[in-house]
C-alpha cells in the first residue's frame, strides 16, 4: 500500500524509460566512433566469448568500459547532487556549481600543475579532491551550514563569493602558465578522455557512500519542500538534514570533479528532467535524477567524440551546449 503510494506504476514506467535511454547511451559509447571500427558485436563477444588476443575486445575492456562506467556514475552523482541542492535551497536554479566544489578543484589543480604551490608531493587526483573539499567546505561554513538559523540565500551568496574568488585565481594561473594552459583547459572543461580502471576504482566507493547519505535525506527533503519551519514542526531535525545534504553533495561532486574535471550543467538539468517525469516525491526523484544525469553524460560523451574525430572534445563543452538553452528555458518559464 505504502509502496504503491511511493512508486506509482506510471512513474515507474518513466524510470524504466530512463534506464533504457541510459543503457542505449552506455552501449553505444562502448563501441561508437572508434579508430578501430568497433562494432556492437565486439561488445557482445566481450561478455560471451572473451578473447585476450582480440585487440577490439581489449580496447573495449581496458578503455571503453571504464570510460562509459565512469561517465554514467559521474552523471548519476551530479544529477543527485543537483537534486539535493535544489531541494535544500528550494531554488530551481541551484546546482552543485554553487558549492564552489568545481572551482576549488580547478584552482588547486591549476596551482599544482604550475608547481606554484606544489602540495606535499600529492598526486593530481588527491590535490583536486582536497581543492574540491576546501571550496565546498568554505561555502558550507560561510553559508551558515552549522548554524541553527538557516537561510538558503546566505548559502547562495557564500557560493557566489567563493566561486568568484577561486575562478579568478584559476584565471590568473592560466594566464601566467600560457602554454601549460592548453593542457589544463581541456581538463577544466570536463574531459573523460583520460579515464581508465584506476579512475573507476577511485570513483565508485565514495560515490556509493554519497548515495547512501543522499538516500537518507529523501524523507527530510520531501518535508523541507513545504518550508523549513513546517518541516521542523513535523519533527525533522533541519540542521542535521542540512549537514547530511551538504555532506552528500560535497562527496558526490568532489569525487566526480576529481576524476573528470568540472562537467557543467548536468546537476542543473538532470533534476528538472526527473521532476518533469516523476513528480515531486524525492524517493522517486532521487533515482530518476541520477539516471537522467547518467544518460545525459553518456550521450554527451558519445557526441563529444564525434565532433572532430579522432580528436577528443571535452564532454563538458557538450553538456554546457545542451545546458545553456535549457537554463534560458527555465528562466523564461519562471517569468511566465
Amino acid at each position: 500500500m505504502t509502496l504503491s503510494f511511493l512508486f506509482p506504476p506510471k512513474k515507474l514506467m518513466s524510470v524504466f524509460i530512463l534506464i533504457t535511454v541510459l543503457l542505449m547511451g552506455f552501449v553505444c559509447s562502448l563501441y561508437g566512433q572508434s579508430e578501430f571500427s568497433l562494432r556492437v558485436n565486439d561488445v557482445w563477444n566481450l561478455f560471451v566469448s572473451y578473447d585476450e588476443s582480440n585487440i577490439n575486445q581489449q580496447i573495449i575492456l581496458s578503455l571503453r568500459l571504464p570510460r562509459s562506467l565512469t561517465a554514467a556514475v559521474i552523471g548519476f552523482n551530479l544529477g543527485i547532487a543537483g537534486l539535493l541542492m535544489q531541494g535544500l535551497t528550494r531554488n530551481p536554479l541551484a546546482s552543485p556549481t554553487l558549492f564552489a566544489i568545481s572551482s576549488g578543484a580547478a584552482c588547486l589543480t591549476a596551482l599544482n600543475s604550475l608547481t606554484v604551490a606544489s602540495i606535499g608531493g600529492l598526486s593530481n587526483e588527491a590535490v583536486a579532491f582536497v581543492g574540491a573539499l576546501t571550496g565546498g567546505g568554505l561555502v558550507f561554513l560561510l553559508g551558515g551550514g552549522l548554524s541553527s538559523n538557516q537561510n538558503a540565500l546566505r548559502l547562495i551568496l557564500a557560493g557566489i563569493a567563493i566561486n568568484g574568488l577561486l575562478t579568478s585565481l584559476t584565471r590568473a594561473v592560466l594566464i601566467i602558465a600560457d602554454d601549460m594552459a592548453y593542457s589544463l583547459l581541456h581538463w577544466l572543461s570536463g574531459s573523460l578522455s583520460g579515464i581508465d580502471w584506476s579512475s573507476w576504482s577511485q570513483l565508485w566507493p565514495l560515490s556509493l557512500l554519497g548515495l547512501f547519505i543522499a538516500t537518507s535525506t529523501c524523507r527530510g527533503l520531501n518535508l523541507n519542500a513545504l518550508g523549513e519551519q513546517t518541516a521542523a514542526s513535523l519533527g525533522v531535525n533541519v540542521t542535521w538534514l542540512r549537514i547530511r545534504i551538504c555532506l552528500a553533495v560535497l562527496i558526490l561532486t568532489s569525487i566526480s570533479v576529481t576524476v573528470a574535471g568540472p562537467i557543467a550543467f548536468v546537476g542543473l538539468i538532470a533534476p528538472h528532467l526527473a521532476r518533469a517525469w516523476c513528480g515531486s516525491n524525492h524517493f522517486m526523484l532521487l533515482p530518476a535524477a541520477g539516471l537522467s544525469g547518467a544518460a545525459l553524460v553518456c550521450w554527451a560523451d558519445l557526441v563529444s567524440r564525434n565532433i572532430i574525430p579522432p580528436a577528443e572534445t571535452p564532454v563538458g563543452i557538450i553538456t554546457a551546449l545542451i545546458g545553456t538553452p535549457f537554463f534560458i528555458y527555465l528562466i523564461l518559464k519562471g517569468k511566465r
Binding site: E35, I59, Y182, P310, E312
Partner: peptide, 11 residues
C-alpha cells in the same frame, strides 16, 4: 595539434 587519447594513440 591533435588531442590524443590512448585509443587514438594505439591507432
Amino acid at each position: 595539434y591533435i588531442s590524443t587519447g590512448f585509443e587514438q594513440f594505439i591507432k
